[in-house]
Design a binder for these strands. Structure first.
Length: 152
DNA sequence: GCCAACGTTGGC
DNA sequence: GCCAACGTTGGC
């Protein structure tokens, strides 16, 4: 089992909306490194931190689970979608998504500022300067530390 | 709203 | 294949 973190701007798609939806297809990602994670590396059953970016405050809102993987990103084929990509073909999709469902809401959001203050999280991808990937792996040790934080 | 840090594009 | 220009992300 692998651990991940995905970023969402809450005014576009928030954790609470996600919980109401019960599940969602995580798509609209237009970065090749992130695409490769979505297409190749994520497995059903993997756990995911749901992170609010560009928010007040930014931070991790809860935990999701990957239900289905390797789904072609249909928004790339929709000319009206902001994620439309004319180079993605129906018989050769360029972009992919995964289906996720909410597993656990944190009692309170774990703010980015809080994460930064934890010495043992030094080196976590999320906290690296200039790091912008919207889909990223999380080391198991970091995952466990953050889980403990969420329970305290 | 600013801007640093990237990623992508396109001329050459 | 280089790299300048441009666009985007996302913290602040």
């Amino acid at each position: 089992m692998q651990y991940w973190l995905i970023k969402s701007e809450p005014f576009k798609y928030s954790w609470d909306t996600f919980c109401k939806d019960k599940k969602t297809c995580w798509d609209g990602v237009r970065n090749y490194q992130a695409r490769n994670f979505l297409r190749d590396a994520m497995k059903s059953g993997d756990r995911v931190f749901f992170y609010h970016s560009n928010a007040e405050p930014s931070g991790i809102a809860g935990i999701a689970e990957i239900v289905r993987t390797g789904l072609p990103d249909r928004s790339a084929w929709d000319p009206k979608s902001p994620y439309f990509d004319p180079d993605s073909r129906e018989n050769d999709p360029r972009w992919f998504g995964v289906e996720i469902r909410p597993v656990k809401k944190f009692r309170e959001l774990i703010a980015l500022e809080k994460l930064k203050s934890i010495k043992s999280l030094d080196g976590m991808l999320l906290l690296r300067k200039g790091q912008r990937l919207s889909v990223q792996p999380v080391e198991e040790s970091h995952w466990k530390i953050i889980l403990e934080l969420s329970a305290s």
